[in-house]
Each structure stands twice: as structure tokens, then as C-alpha cells.
């Protein structure tokens, strides 16, 4: 199988994203607002409390949110689920099915392409935010942390994509899947550490979260970088993360092949 066609798709996706540059520049700009709100909120909280929370002081907390912003800018799929659902619902899939490309591979190429350009364009912007908050930055003390972080961020990217992909596959069975997308999004928002670090929750909650996929979409890679997860916990986490990547991938594949049998090729 030649990979070059997928590189071409990757390239098309890059160009597509650039065409709608306003759209994602605005999105990144709007990311700042909740961040600033969060910083203010935690400042007030730490002022009222006067001591660290679950090992975070105010600076560490701000750095945590900066990292979540960076990681989600790097890896979170933008509207891949909507596009895939639209492909299926409107019958645009027909044009792709008759071409000698694998649809899942086609989608992965587009995902990687749009993520790359998004990262390249928003990175200066994110770095600027980091520069503004430079006092809060604490680099890891151990060199191997960088390696583990890279591995875990990479897996988080694929985990996020495969979850998105599997949800979008539901469009084979249901006409309207936007509610399902938003329901999953709410779980991701609250349980992946987007709103608050998961180690602030009660122990029973954390124990449950260790086995959920959401933890590994964002919180886990960040906590690896912050060196809050090291040693056996790190290896266990990486294993569970890898397990979820494989599981969601298999789910996506299974749904694709079953869905295709049901596919009615409307429109076209």
C-alpha cells in the first residue's frame, strides 16, 4: 500500500485549515477568556485558603491550566465528528468509497493534517500566553519525563480521535447525533481534567477515574509532565492508556464495518 496518497490528503487538510484561518484563530483567541477567568477564580480560592490544595500552590495550579490549554490545542479534534457524520448522512461517503483509499486512514490523515497546521499556527499564540505567565512555568526535574510526556500526549491524541471517530460512526444508525456528541463532550469536559485537576477530587472518585478513558485524554499526560505521576503509577497509567487506544480503535473499526453494511448511500 502506498502511503503517498495519505500524505496528499494530509496536505489537503493543511490547506483547508488555512483557508478558514479566521475560524480557528478566533477559537484560540476565545480560549483565553476562560483561562483568565480560571486564574482569577483560583487566585481568590488560594487567598481564602492560605495553603496548598492537594499539592498545588497557586503557581502550580496556573501552570496546570496552561498545560491543559497547550495539550488540547495540540491534540483535540476540531470538528472531525461533525464532518464524518455529515459524510455519512448526506451520502458524501459514496464518492470516497469508490476511490482506492481506506476511509479510516483517510480520516486519520485529515485529523493529523488539521492538527499539525492548527498547532503550527496557534503555537506562537500559546507561547505568547506562556510568556505572559512565565513566572508559573516549572520544567520537569527528570530528563525521562519529556519522553514519557511525548508518548502519553501522542496516545492521548489517538485516543481522542478514536473516541470522536467511534461516536461519529453512530451516524450510520441515527439521523441526528449532535446530542450524543454533546453528551460525550460533557463527560470529557468534566472528567478529563479540563475544568479542574482530577487529583482534587475525593479518593474514591480518583480511583474510579483511573479506569475511565477520559482521564487519559488530557489529565494523565499533563500529570506526567508535572511529575505527579511517576514510577509504578506511570507505567500502570501508560498501559491503561494504551489499552484504551486499542479498545477505541477496535470499536471504531467494528462500527465502521457494521455501519457500512447498513449504509443506504442517500443523496449522491
Amino acid at each position: 500500500m502506498s502511503l503517498s496518497k495519505y500524505f496528499k490528503l494530509f496536505d489537503i487538510s493543511l490547506q483547508n485549515t488555512v483557508v478558514y484561518r479566521w475560524n480557528f484563530l478566533l477559537r484560540s483567541l476565545f480560549d483565553v477568556m476562560p483561562l483568565v477567568g480560571t486564574v482569577y477564580l483560583w487566585r481568590a480560592l488560594f487567598a481564602a485558603r492560605g495553603q496548598p490544595i492537594a499539592g498545588y500552590d497557586f503557581e502550580a495550579m496556573v501552570f496546570y491550566f496552561l498545560l491543559t490549554l497547550l495539550v488540547s490545542n495540540l491534540i483535540t479534534p476540531a470538528d472531525d465528528d461533525w464532518q464524518i457524520a455529515a459524510d455519512i448522512r448526506d451520502g458524501q461517503l459514496n464518492a470516497l468509497l469508490i476511490k482506492p483509499v481506506s476511509y479510516p486512514a483517510y480520516r486519520i490523515s485529515l485529523f493529523l493534517g488539521s492538527r499539525t497546521i492548527h498547532a503550527a499556527v496557534t503555537l506562537p499564540f500559546v507561547l505568547l500566553i506562556f510568556a505572559v505567565f512565565h513566572r508559573y512555568i516549572r520544567l520537569p526535574g527528570h530528563a525521562d519525563t519529556w519522553l514519557w510526556t511525548a508518548l502519553s500526549v501522542g496516545m492521548a491524541a489517538f485516543l481522542q480521535f478514536f473516541i470522536t471517530y467511534s461516536i461519529a460512526m453512530l451516524a450510520f444508525w441515527f439521523l441526528e447525533i449532535s446530542t450524543i456528541i454533546f453528551i460525550v463532550l460533557s463527560f470529557e469536559y468534566f472528567l478529563s481534567g479540563h475544568l479542574f485537576p482530577l487529583d482534587l477530587t475525593p479518593p474514591w472518585f480518583q480511583a474510579a477515574a483511573t479506569w475511565l478513558p477520559f482521564t487519559y485524554e488530557l489529565f494523565f499526560p499533563v500529570s506526567v509532565f508535572l511529575e505527579k505521576t511517576r514510577g509504578p503509577a506511570l507505567y500502570q497509567g501508560l498501559l491503561i492508556q494504551a489499552g484504551w487506544v486499542v479498545l477505541t480503535w477496535l470499536a471504531g473499526r467494528a462500527m465502521w464495518s457494521r455501519g457500512l453494511r447498513r449504509y443506504g448511500a442517500y443523496g449522491g
Binding site: W22, N23, L26, R27, F30, D31, P34, G37, Y40, A44
Partner: peptide, 21 residues
């Protein structure tokens, strides 16, 4: 701007802080 979904996202971002004291 032709593709303006980013703007709708902006509503949620702006309104986000109104839940805080």
C-alpha cells in the same frame, strides 16, 4: 467571516466567567 462556528464558541467562552462571584 465565512465560516463562523468559531464565533458561537466565543459566546460560551465569554459567558463562561459569569458563573463566578
Amino acid at each position: 467571516i465565512v465560516r463562523a462556528q468559531g464565533l458561537i464558541y466565543g459566546y460560551y467562552s465569554l459567558i463562561n466567567v459569569s458563573r463566578y462571584p
